[in-house]
Amino acid sequence: MPSAVVDKFFRTNKLPQIWCPGCGHGIITRAITVAVEKLGFDRDKICVVSGIGCSSRATGYLDFDTLHTTHGRALPFATGVKLANPDMKVIVITGDGDCTAIGGNHLIHACRRNIGITTIVFNNNIYGMTGGQYSPTTPKFDKGTTAPYGNIDKAFDISNLAASAGATYVGRSTAYHTNLLISLIENGLKNDGFSLIEAISSCPTYYGRKNKKGDAVNMLEWQKDHAVNISAASKMTPESLEGKFLIGEFKNSPEPEYTSEYQKIIDRFNKE
């Protein structure tokens, strides 16, 4: 018999999951269910949609209405679900490659529309499932199987990208900072419009090994040592923030949600 939250929200007959030992994805997936449990949402009013990649395996383990869709297209499928069922809470689970490379255009337009979808990006800085190719969030000069001498592209900052594109709730946390992650997901789900939570994961098998980051434990310790909460960062000097990254709530500015604006137009013509 697993723990209460796992028993309630997971398809336990599908466990143990397929992810590598120490992969951060399992931690983040559980964090989503804890957030849903805390909010007390009706499980039958939640749909979880994923694309393709390691992260997107999560929908196979979660016991909600789930859709495992095509590469980069979780947000378009989720947009359809939300438009057809505006009362439904729609959660998208996606990875850094799925969300910002293959589905990059869908991401910025979903942000711009402010459609009521909470997107949780499992960012492990690499394409894990296909063998460790560098992704849009692989840090500059870090290695992947397709960048054996170091990646010369600049990395996307997913949270700032989403905030700039118009997402109305944006936060970032890590697999290590699990309680912060749970509270950001809760707040994201409470926002009627488009929310994006960037969950920094860890890939010991590919990103870690290629870049000599150590094992799963070392990678979580790295997150612990290099993350700075945005509220603390404002009081720190640029020198002390060198090599660090920010976590916390980046944006919380609700605006009218897309399906409710759409309904207003329908109502206008129904009256005439």
Binding site: S3, Q17, G26, N179
Partner: peptide
């Protein structure tokens, strides 16, 4: 332990 077990193998 439960918070960060990626495999839900340990819990209170």
């Amino acid at each position: 332990c439960e918070l960060r077990c990626p495999d839900y193998a340990i819990y209170l």
